[in-house]
Nucleic acid binder design. Sequence first.
DNA 1: TTTATTGTTCTACAACTATCGAACTATAAT
DNA 2: ATTATAGTTCGATAGTTGTAGAACAATAAA
Lengths: 109, 109
Amino acid sequence: MKQYQHPTADQITLTGVLHALSDPVRLNYVQCLAQSIGEQACGTVPTSVAKSTMSHHIRVLREAGIIHIRPYGTQSLISLRSDELEKKFPGVFTSVLTAAKSSDVVELP
Amino acid sequence: MKQYQHPTADQITLTGVLHALSDPVRLNYVQCLAQSIGEQACGTVPTSVAKSTMSHHIRVLREAGIIHIRPYGTQSLISLRSDELEKKFPGVFTSVLTAAKSSDVVELP
DNA sequence: TTTATTGTTCTACAACTATCGAACTATAAT
DNA sequence: ATTATAGTTCGATAGTTGTAGAACAATAAA
């Protein structure tokens, strides 16, 4: 079984979070996750890039502390670490998500 | 006289702003600007990088729509475009600044 | 057991980026 | 006019990153 390494709250950096969210593909993915409820498998979110590319993006999000990955069968169930992020950087994550949602800022390449 | 090109409000993208703020040197610089009042010359903010490197970072911030540059003699007076950013992406800029200020997240390399 | 499903890892590559020194520009001061 | 000051621009370089295909691993379904 796959073991995923997640950063603890104090290991999460602001610049790391901002960098992870600054990619259109990742921001779009995170925004889709936020609109869903609970956990989502990787494949359930529509993407415009290859499977291996998405795997890379998901790792970046995980290492930045934005998502949590839980293996379930052959799937990887993804959930946002919204609460921890909100606690560590109040307003940052929520305002970014709102901004991403309320306009066409998320342009897939 | 140097002519600087600034993006209009509708040319500013969320990913562009996030990317510009995701660099420690730039985030530190912006945070210093925010703690000052009004315009600041480039040189008045302490940095840990070379002059030419700082010039590069300042251009990135300008092209992302985060700062405004006004030539004044031999100096470049910098001001934050806080109001425009707040209007376009409510809460994003302010929350990032607060997060950067309230902890040691800004680590100069 | 064989096949299908889901996602990861590896390799490669092209594009981008942060960094710096050196040369340059333009204004200010002497 | 000469010197000083404040930034910009130009190479060059080392490191990072987004992309995708191929091979792989692990579980599920037949």
